[in-house]
């Protein structure tokens, strides 16, 4: 968790914003995930979100659903994701955040998941089907182990919920850009900039925006309003399309391009 706080502090001092790429862990296999993570770290990623594969990802669009299926076919589950995170921690200081649905974490055990994750160098968790009302037991376990439980806020929320999410979250607040599921979009809602301004006025913690952000132009547009930008499906689409050296090169270049407008 300290790594996340330090990251946003350092970036703020430099007038820089965080690029937060997402990939599904084990898509198409663990070796590729590891290589991609290190390549992205080298090319401008500031914090990595690693998706935990799940059979029924109901907040995700077709791109991440398919990635999740590919990873499951290779037998990648929470245990393997934790192990890979541990390996990555030996190679990089980049904060690592796991994003996954509640049931696999519940099945593994809340305290056990939080403790093992902390020991392996995972910095936080984002659980998209765990709203504030249900997150008490998990937040307790995460806090005890020293991993951040990162809350989401959505456009449907209204000021009261957003303020509460800002108060309860650790690390940063993840604002969902669209009323919808994950997936690359060519157009983001025009009112997003105004919404982010409002969120900024309601919360004190670092603010990141995600869902649907797929290109450099969108990142450039959003950069002034936030502390970090999450790009997921647009990367996962490329992972699905390419292989080997070509994949690493393409993802590296894409990440570098996305980081460009976030630099001071």
């Amino acid at each position: 968790m300290k790594r996340i706080e330090a990251l946003f502090r350092t970036l703020k001092q430099r007038g820089e914003k965080a690029l937060i790429p997402f990939i599904t862990c084990g898509d198409p296999d663990l070796q590729t995930t590891r290589a991609l993570a290190l390549e992205m770290a080298a090319r401008g990623a500031d914090l990595l979100e690693l998706g935990i594969p799940f059979s029924d990802p109901l907040a995700d669009g077709p791109t991440i659903q398919a990635a999740s299926n590919r990873a499951l076919q290779h037998g990648v589950h929470l245990q393997e994701v934790l192990e890979l995170a541990g390996k990555l921690r030996r190679d990089t200081d980049m904060p690592l955040v796991l994003m996954g649905y509640y049931n696999p974490i519940l099945k593994h055990g809340l305290e056990r998941t939080a403790r093992e994750a902390a020991q392996l160098g995972v910095d936080g968790f984002i659980i998209p089907d765990l709203p504030l009302e249900e997150s008490g037991p998990w937040r307790k376990a995460a806090t005890a182990a020293g991993v951040a439980s990162i809350c989401l806020a959505a456009p449907t929320g209204g000021p009261q919920r957003i303020r509460k999410a800002g108060r309860l979250t650790r690390g940063f607040l993840y604002y969902v850009s669209v009323t919808g599921i994950t997936g690359a979009r060519t157009a983001l809602p025009a009112e997003l900039a105004a919404a982010l301004k409002e969120v900024r006025s309601l919360v004190k913690c670092p603010l990141a925006v995600g869902f649907g952000i797929s290109n450099q132009e969108q990142v450039r547009w959003l950069a002034p309003y936030v502390d970090g930008v999450v790009v997921g499906s647009a990367i996962v689409q490329r992972v699905a399309r390419l292989k080997g050296k070509e994949l690493l090169k393409e993802i590296g270049n894409f990440v570098a391009a996305l980081k460009e407008p976030l630099k001071p």
Partner: peptide, 20 residues
């Protein structure tokens, strides 16, 4: 009031749906 039947039930949905 939390939508629980004993330990069962609840509202495990994306934040977007909670207000609904």
């Amino acid at each position: 009031r939390h939508g629980r039947y004993g330990q069962y039930g609840g509202r495990f949905v994306p934040e977007t749906l909670m207000p609904a």
